[in-house]
Amino acid sequence: MKLTRTKFMKAREFVYANARLLDRRRFAYQFEQGSADFVLNALRSYQNDDGGFGSALEPDIRTPYSQPVAVECALAILDEIGAADPGILRGIRKFLKDTERDGGGFPRAKIDVNEYPHAPWWNTADDSHGSLNPTGRILGLLHKLKAEPLPGEEDAWFSRSTDFVWSRIPLADPSDYHDLIQCITFLEHVPNRRRAEAELRKVDEWLQVPGTIELDPNASGYVHTVLDWAPSPDSYARKWISEEDIGRHLDVLIERQQEDGGWDMNFSALSGGNEAEWRGLVTVDRLVTLKAYGRLE
């Protein structure tokens, strides 16, 4: 099964009618030969003077102030468009240096998240310690983008935070998608390959535990199914998923396009505007996955 051209155009209409400027430009980059610079210009509007990112780049965190998870989102967008923008990355390194906690790592959320509307799972009572999520993926993406501290920059924070992630990987929740994605991204790109390969063998064991990767495409609730783990054929977890399961989930993904052309998320929205932002983001992501697997007509 492939997404027909008619249904693709319906999705396009949904994105341009509902999505944020950033996600409209991501769509244009992916499907209409749009410029990576246009994506970068939209992304820069979320970057603060401290070098971090805020203003609901992560749509469930509405604070204008910089948050580590918003930095993770920004790095993921740079990775998506293959643009290691020096100015953006210089700001990110400054923010991370200033945000590192004692013992290394960055908090899951800074406590000022509580001052603005946010999803309940972002409630934060203490931001004094680092967290594997999002530290692991932040550092992994910095390595992937070759955006480690430059020669001459003070890089002790980077080394401490790297050591922090190494220490937290054995303590990760092996059934938790978010923990494992943090581990995987870090271990795929950290330079110490011998140590990384040893840790990845443990991650492989976790991924093969029944239920870790949800194989039922119709599972309800906040679950992480095959295409969350393997949104493209080159995703790390893809090797533990059969062709049959990939095919079934792609078919169901196509079937779940809504009448308005977009796709829904599997969690509650904060507001109507928040829902539109999430659905625009998710719809672009779903189309990128279908493109990666050759499921667009």
Rank of each mutant, 00 (worst) to 15 (best):
S175G: 15
L171T: 12
R137F: 03
D98C: 13
I169C: 11
D127H: 11
A172W: 02
K146W: 03
T162S: 14
D155F: 06
E154C: 11
S131G: 05
Q182L: 05
L200G: 03
F106A: 05
P120F: 10
P117W: 00
P191Q: 09
E199M: 14
E100K: 12
I181C: 15
R195P: 03
R101F: 13
L132M: 04
G152L: 04
F164P: 04
H129W: 10
V113C: 00
A172H: 07
L142M: 14
H143Y: 15
R195I: 02
E197C: 10
I181N: 08
W157V: 02
A198D: 14
V190G: 01
L142C: 11
N133Q: 06
C183S: 08
E153R: 02
P120D: 13
L145T: 10
I138A: 01
E197N: 14
Y116H: 15
C183L: 07
Q182M: 08
L200V: 14
E148C: 15
D173K: 08
A172P: 05
N133Y: 14
T135R: 05
T99H: 07
D179V: 10
G140S: 00
L139Q: 04
V190E: 01
F158S: 01
L180Y: 06
E100C: 10
V190L: 11
H143A: 01
E199A: 14
D179A: 07
I181P: 04
A198P: 02
T135Q: 01
K110A: 06
I169L: 12
A156E: 15
L200R: 13
D112I: 04
H118V: 01
L145Y: 04
P149D: 07
D179P: 02
T185F: 11
E154F: 09
T99N: 14
G104Q: 08
A119N: 11
L171I: 10
A109Q: 02
L145S: 03
N192T: 12
V190Y: 10
P151Q: 04
